[in-house]
């Protein structure tokens, strides 16, 4: 049997540069399209690199309304073999606990892959809960901040991955199956290919799972299965910018900038060197 990989992705509104309505304090969401959560593309790319080396199959899984098929199409365009859409009205309104529960049960139903990848976090909630929770539900080892898969040995049942930490790398040998969260912005996702898009349209490599297939207790999924309560949402007040523009050559600009930052008390001189003042 060949290497089985699965990547969890999320279809999120592209809020990378969304604005707030200054009058109402709410997000201006009109016409904002959804995209595959950028961090999840790191996970997809990481999985595809393993496939480049070892072969096997990469599938993606997402719990979302049917419009997320467009996101599955995108990653299939990158070379992912097939997609699984987990969708049901009863899954709506889920927090991370209910989401990870549904995902883990769907993955179990599909058969545990050797490697299960996730992105580090999503742009619409940034909890970073899902990979850890799925690992927990499935009782699998979990490694995060991974920027490289060094070795996969299916016969002996282990993989060696590299974790990218703030100041060092760490190599971890992990038993298969394992859950791996890709380090944020650690990959450059490969371009969508025409031939892969044509494969998507020709073969429709897409599977849909509803709660009819999973048979989960409605009390454990969706809004009912979600203990999280968002009590309040507030926004950071906009910090007024001083907006000074310096025109001149780069060396002069650097000197000018340092001088300005020192005047503001952001840089301080210690032992003949400039340091950022620690508050």
């Amino acid at each position: 049997m060949s290497l089985e990989m699965m990547v969890g992705i999320k279809w999120v509104p592209n809020t990378q540069n969304v604005r707030f309505d200054p009058k109402t304090g709410t997000l201006i969401r009109e016409g904002v399209p959804s995209i595959v959560n950028p961090a999840d593309l790191d996970a997809v790319e990481l999985a595809l690199k393993v496939k480049d080396t070892y072969g096997g199959r990469v599938r993606v899984i997402t719990m979302a309304p049917p419009s997320a098929v467009k996101g599955i199409e995108h990653v299939i365009g990158m070379g992912v073999d097939a997609g699984v859409l987990v969708t049901d009205r009863v899954f709506a309104g889920a927090d991370t606990l209910a989401t990870s529960y549904v995902l883990s049960q769907a993955i179990k139903k599909l058969g545990l892959p050797d490697l299960l990848f996730f992105g580090q976090e999503t742009i619409d909630s940034s909890t970073a809960h899902i990979p850890a929770q799925v690992a927990s539900w499935l009782d699998l080892p979990y490694v995060y901040y991974v920027d490289r898969v060094e070795e996969v040995n299916r016969e002996e049942g282990y993989a060696v991955v590299r974790r990218k930490l703030e100041d060092r790398y760490e190599w971890v040998r992990v038993e298969l199956p394992a859950v791996i969260a890709a380090a944020l912005k650690s990959q450059v996702p490969r371009p969508v290919r025409l031939s892969e898009k044509l494969r998507f349209h020709r073969d429709k490599p897409l599977q849909t799972l509803t709660n009819k297939d999973l048979g989960l207790d409605p009390r454990c999924v969706g809004l009912r299965g979600s203990p999280t309560i968002v009590a309040k949402v507030t926004w950071m007040p906009e910090v007024p910018r001083k907006r000074q523009v310096f025109k001149g050559d780069a060396r002069e600009a650097a000197r000018w900038l340092v001088k300005k930052l020192a005047e503001e008390g952001i840089l301080v001189r210690e032992d003949g060197r400039w340091r950022v003042r620690v508050a």
């Binding site: 995108h74 969508v192 290919r193 025409l194 898009k197 044509l198 349209h201």
Partner: peptide
């Protein structure tokens, strides 16, 4: 028609 979007020719 087959629409293949996100593809630069």
């Amino acid at each position: 028609a087959v629409l293949a979007d996100e593809v630069r020719v």
